[in-house]
Amino acid sequence: MTQPNSIQSVLEQLAENQKANAEPQLSSRQRRARTVARLAAVQALYQMELAGEGVDTVITEFSNHRFDADIEGEPLAEADEDYFAQIVRGVVGEQSAIDAAVKARLASNWRLERLDSTLRALLRSGAWELRSRPDVPREIVIDEYVELAKAFFDEAEAKFVNAALDGVARDVRAA
Rank of each mutant, 00 (worst) to 15 (best):
A15E: 09
M48F: 06
S9N: 13
S28K: 14
I71A: 04
A37M: 02
T35H: 13
Q13S: 14
A22T: 02
G52E: 12
A44S: 08
I71Y: 03
R32P: 00
L76I: 04
S9F: 10
V36N: 01
A15T: 09
V42Y: 00
N64I: 01
L45M: 13
P24D: 14
V42S: 01
Q13I: 02
N21H: 15
P24Q: 14
L76R: 00
N64A: 08
N17M: 14
F62E: 02
E16A: 13
T60I: 00
A40T: 06
A44M: 09
D68F: 12
E61A: 09
L39H: 06
A37L: 01
N64R: 10
I7D: 03
L50Q: 10
Q30A: 15
A20H: 13
R34S: 03
G73Q: 05
S28G: 11
A20Q: 15
D68V: 07
L11T: 00
L50R: 13
A69N: 06
E53K: 10
S6N: 05
T35Q: 12
T35S: 14
E49L: 08
P75C: 04
M48Q: 07
V42R: 01
I71G: 00
T60L: 07
R29Y: 09
R32W: 14
S28M: 15
T57N: 03
D68C: 09
S63I: 00
L39M: 11
S63H: 10
D68P: 00
V36M: 13
F67W: 08
S9R: 13
D68W: 07
P75R: 11
A33P: 06
R66K: 09
Q8N: 08
N21T: 11
P75A: 07
Q47A: 14
E12P: 02
Y46G: 05
T35Y: 07
I59E: 01
E74C: 05
E53A: 08
L76H: 03
L26P: 02
Q18L: 11
D56T: 05
V55C: 07
E61C: 04
D70P: 05
Q8I: 10
M48G: 09
Q8K: 11
Q3I: 13
A37F: 01
R38N: 10
L76V: 05
R32H: 15
S63Q: 07
S9P: 01
R66E: 10
V36F: 03
V55H: 06
S27G: 11
N5G: 13
V42P: 01
L45R: 12
P75Y: 06
R38P: 01
M48Y: 04
Q43R: 14
E74Y: 05
P24H: 13
I71L: 14
S28W: 10
A15R: 08
Q3K: 13
A41S: 15
L50A: 07
G73Y: 01
P24I: 13
R31I: 10
M48E: 02
A15M: 04
R34P: 04
V58M: 08
A33F: 03
R66H: 09
E23M: 11
A40Q: 03
R66S: 08
S9A: 15
I7S: 00
Q18I: 02
P24Y: 10
